[in-house]
Design a protein around this nucleic acid. Sequence first.
DNA 1: AGCGATCTTGACGCATGGTTCAAGTTCTAC
DNA 2: GTAGAACTTGAACCATGCGTCAAGATCGCT
Lengths: 191, 191
Amino acid sequence: MTSETPRLRADAQRNVEGIRLAALDVFRAHGLNTPLDAVARAAGVSKGTIYHRFGGRQGLIDAVVEELVAERIKGIITAVGAIDDPVERFENYLRQIWLLQYDEPAANDVLLRSMPTSGAVNALCEHANENAGRLLADAQATGKVRADLTAEDVWLLIWERGIIARACAEQPRDGYSRRSEYTLRGLRSGS
Amino acid sequence: MTSETPRLRADAQRNVEGIRLAALDVFRAHGLNTPLDAVARAAGVSKGTIYHRFGGRQGLIDAVVEELVAERIKGIITAVGAIDDPVERFENYLRQIWLLQYDEPAANDVLLRSMPTSGAVNALCEHANENAGRLLADAQATGKVRADLTAEDVWLLIWERGIIARACAEQPRDGYSRRSEYTLRGLRSGS
DNA sequence: AGCGATCTTGACGCATGGTTCAAGTTCTAC
DNA sequence: GTAGAACTTGAACCATGCGTCAAGATCGCT
């Protein structure tokens, strides 16, 4: 029960942990596509070790993505869930997700499905999308949000903002979010 | 007066023309960052010849960009200039530019200033921006377009759509333009 | 026709980054 | 203490694409 696999040697175990920590740092700062060399260097091991222990980028991501972004996304879902007004709730959800995409390249990569073959990443992304779908329906029920908006539209709006956030690089955060706001206004009903 | 430089040999002249034509085709289809190998292959010459005749990507672009996109941009400016209502004029300008960005990767590259060191590209981009500034001012004078919108905002909105268009790849055109419309609505005054 | 100037070629070196694996190192059970 | 399994390394391979240049091909003038 304690450990199914034959147990790692002490040095290997140390390395696995070191690599995980390094990956958390490096991915957090530069996204899930950072060269594995960078992770290896940060962990003080060689590239080969990462391939050995995690099987490649995908495995490494699977091993850290939960700790890397799940908290953030769930935090937003929870925080926004406390808002009473459905329109406010929906709009704030988008605002926060969009800012998260700007602030955290790794979270952005998850929401953009950069690693479409990773189960862990997809699960997180699905989770976010389901929530968005619910919030959208509630908001539309008030009549204050355009009725022709679909759940897929919302996902694509998040995708679009993510693509922009990724390209933003050195552009100011408030400009980014001001322009996000224009899109948000366009989602409301009327004229 | 007929020709300052010592005149090219006939075969060289043929190649210059062939390369220009090939570049028009290839750039039109895949944007200004297409590997020069592709242009060379399309022209039936080798990479080296392009470097020889045009000095590299930049020179080649300078030699074709005018023919490649000036027409399109000027066409939009003219067409839109015929609209009476300033708001309509402004909004249609954005609509058309945004579609151009989706339809023509090369025009998109110009508007995104992909080649910041190319005078020819910059001139075209400037020209478009000046026009947008004028249209914005007129539209704002009616009070129907948000007063806090600046010319730089408009440029950045074009930049954002361009980044998205570039990433769109296999996404449907009408989804892209529907979402553009949301942003457009958000630019109007009110609420 | 032949010579020299002009022109083209394609293989080379550069850099990035993923992925593999033979060889060498370190651990640990005995 | 040591044998041998477990582990790590780093250089080698791949692929992409830019930019260069010595060698060879072609043109066109005489």
